[in-house]
Design a protein around this nucleic acid. Structure first.
Lengths: 191, 191
DNA sequence: ACCTGAACACCGTTCAAGT
DNA sequence: ACCTGAACACCGTTCAAGT
């Protein structure tokens, strides 16, 4: 005799993401998720292989949203301007979703990480813009430099690593300005 | 009737760091540590407040070693040269101690992180060198830019985030060259 | 077809009892 | 003074039994 479904995969992932953002990765327990969607913990295993799988599904959800955000930020046609907007959109996303951000860029087991294709989509706009600035020969190097800086800056900011005072917003603007000009094709080469 | 001590705090921290490096943060259980030092789990609590405290002690150990490594890499007197050597030393340290590195720069609860003063010592050489290059007005901004880039680059490399092929070593050299020249006082300002 | 209680293995941690 | 077994709370996960 069939029992009507009391929840769904989407509801589980959404509940998981909400709990993650509220209480961090350690607060994300199967019991919390089950209670949130109104079911007992064992029932979750009808829709999800286990906690590791659920974490990956949440990471996919977050990284997909990041991809949309980034795509929407790179539409001006001026790569210089786009790069600045991309950097600011990236930082704003991380500040709005700190624990979700850590899920994407933090160190996780392979099985917990978001799908590589989704990660590629999230960085596509930055790659394209950096390549437009740096030219074909150094496009990939330039993109990696910008992504590394943005990710490092934001994760240090989120973890409270900038402890020496000063204006963190100014440091961010300084960084994107210097990077933007120094990766640009035609900029003077390093002396 | 006193019982002779069968282990010590130093031995516990060393065992913890060895287990961390071998099996990651999830493999670092009180049971593993206790077995390694030849004691039952409850005995650890005579020397350590709990797992959180032990993680912090290990983080302190790692960050202290990083500080020594960095200090030793910045001795040439030429800030340009020092900056390059610092970046390479930083990356080499992370590659030699990947899980220890994640303990320092990954997202952890406040109680698990290394002492702020030790973190400051580890970044002192980079700060000093970047400030020497950028001059007093932009020293802090420049240092934050370089540290953010180095940390972001290394953590992405460790987590396997550079998936588009190409030469990662070249991207690292490219990044440090561009940063070094673009933060230097007297370099052309961003256009 | 989905849900549940009971059970298991494995954690961190406490504490009274041993020496 | 340090060490230990026993116990507790809390995880993730499995599974036979219910509807």
């Amino acid at each position: 005799m069939p029992t009507p479904a009391r929840t769904s995969l989407d509801e589980i992932v959404l509940a998981g993401r909400t709990i993650l953002e509220a209480d961090g990765i350690d607060g994300l327990t199967m019991q919390r998720v089950a209670a949130t969607v109104g079911v007992r913990p064992p029932s979750l295993y009808k829709r999800v292989e286990g906690r590791t799988h659920l974490v990956r599904l949440i990471a996919n959800d977050v990284v997909g949203e990041l991809a949309e955000t980034m795509d929407a930020a790179a539409t001006s046609g001026d790569p210089r301007h786009d790069l600045r907007r991309l950097a600011h959109a990236f930082r704003a996303f991380a500040q709005a979703n700190p624990n979700g951000y850590s899920l994407i860029f933090g160190q996780l087991d392979e099985a917990e990480r978001a799908d590589p294709e989704l990660n590629a989509r999230a960085s596509a706009a930055l790659l394209r813009t950096a390549a437009a600035l740096a030219g074909p020969d150094y496009g990939l190097d330039a993109a990696r430099t910008v992504v590394a800086w943005a990710n490092g800056f934001v994760s240090m900011e989120l973890s409270g690593a900038f402890r020496l005072g000063g204006d963190v917003d100014r440091a961010f603007a300084y960084g994107i300005d210097r990077l933007s000009s120094s990766i640009s094709d035609g900029a003077p080469l390093p002396r």
